[in-house]
């Protein structure tokens, strides 16, 4: 059993990271008071922007890692721009945020494939090299018993970027006055405004960060396990939304929820190839993450920590 866990851990983490960063983006948006159901679409935008950038750089730039970094940056920028659509609609125009998010999702899928086909001649964009996978030999971390082989073996550098963002987010939200103000906009915007906070500006910040993070999530899919843009992230954005709620709108909760999804899906995916797991009916393994989420929500939702003003136009 240890052998199996040790073996699949790097892949479970690889699957977790895009979910985590996207859910974290959703967290900023909802904490500021805007529901962002368009995470799925924003992920697709990042997926596309990274693929296109790296693809275009391949003939002119030989440094693969630099290409990847530029691809990630392009994705973040594209995500911010695309999320402006949602921000303008839901903040300035007081739109129904669910509707606007749905429109973002629909638009992203159609527009990116269309652009891909017109720019590269194919709706699928293929890149040569993504992020290399390495053991973390720094301080001998990979040699730590148990934890070393689980967390520091065969990692992508994008994983560490996301972990750093997670820690920074936690710090900003809970340890700075800025974070306090942001959260106030999602709880009591009117009180926040009387306290002199620019609610609009805070909410713009929240939504744009969600765009940047979700797009980064999509880009990480591209440079780690996918290697090819295909026009869809197959519901991962919605899963991130679920992880956000499952994680009770808290950075560490979101980390736990995303990791649970990542691990459970990986187990379900590889179950057919692992003799020890073959005895379990696949239908149980495949539905396991979803059923457990429902059960967990039943246990934790009574004392829900949802931002009170989330989804309500100010």
């Amino acid at each position: 059993m240890w052998e199996i866990i040790r073996q699949i851990f790097p892949y479970a983490i690889a699957f977790t990271i895009p979910l985590l960063i996207t859910a974290l983006g959703g967290l900023f948006s909802e904490r500021s008071g805007v529901v962002n159901i368009g995470l799925e679409g924003l992920m697709v935008v990042g997926f596309f922007a990274a693929a296109l950038t790296i693809y275009k750089l391949e003939p002119v730039m030989s440094n693969a890692v630099l290409r990847v970094i530029l691809g990630l940056l392009a994705a973040v920028i594209a995500g911010v721009i695309f999320s402006l659509l949602h921000a303008v609609a839901s903040i300035h125009m007081k739109a129904n945020q669910v509707i606007s998010g749905t429109a973002i999702n629909m638009m992203a899928g159609a527009v990116t494939v269309y652009l891909a086909r017109n720019i590269t001649g194919s709706g699928n964009i293929h890149i040569e090299a993504g992020v290399p996978r390495k053991d973390v030999s720094f301080l001998g971390l990979v040699k730590i018993p148990v934890l070393g082989p689980l967390f520091f073996r065969q990692t992508y550098f994008t994983t560490w970027i996301v972990i750093a963002i997670l820690l920074a987010s936690w710090f900003i939200l809970y340890k700075t006055s800025f974070g306090l103000r942001l959260r106030a906009c999602g709880e009591h915007p009117h009180a926040a405004e009387s306290a002199g906070i620019n609610v609009y500006r805070m909410r713009y910040f929240g939504v744009l960060v969600s765009g940047a993070f979700a797009a980064l999530g999509g880009a990480i899919i591209m440079v780690t396990y996918s290697g090819e843009f295909s026009g869809t992230v197959s519901g991962l954005g919605f899963l991130a939304l679920a992880a956000l709620i499952f994680g009770q709108w808290k950075p560490l909760g979101v980390l736990g929820a995303s990791f649970f999804f990542g691990f459970a899906s990986t187990i379900a995916n590889v179950s057919q190839a692992v003799p020890a797991l073959m005895a379990i009916p696949p239908i149980l393994l495949k539905t396991f993450p979803y059923i457990v989420t429902l059960v967990a929500l039943v246990l934790f939702s009574k004392s829900s920590q949802a931002p009170k003003a989330s989804g309500i136009p100010f």
Binding site: A242, I245, T287, Y290, T293, V298
Partner: peptide, 28 residues
């Protein structure tokens, strides 16, 4: 029921139910 009794957010629970339905059909 989950919403009424346990305050479970229906957006998440219906997404979960979608995937449970998807895999049920897939194997049944």
């Amino acid at each position: 029921l989950l919403k009424a009794r346990f305050n479970v957010n229906e957006v998440v629970s219906t997404i979960m139910m979608n995937w449970i339905a998807y895999w049920s059909v897939y194997y049944i």
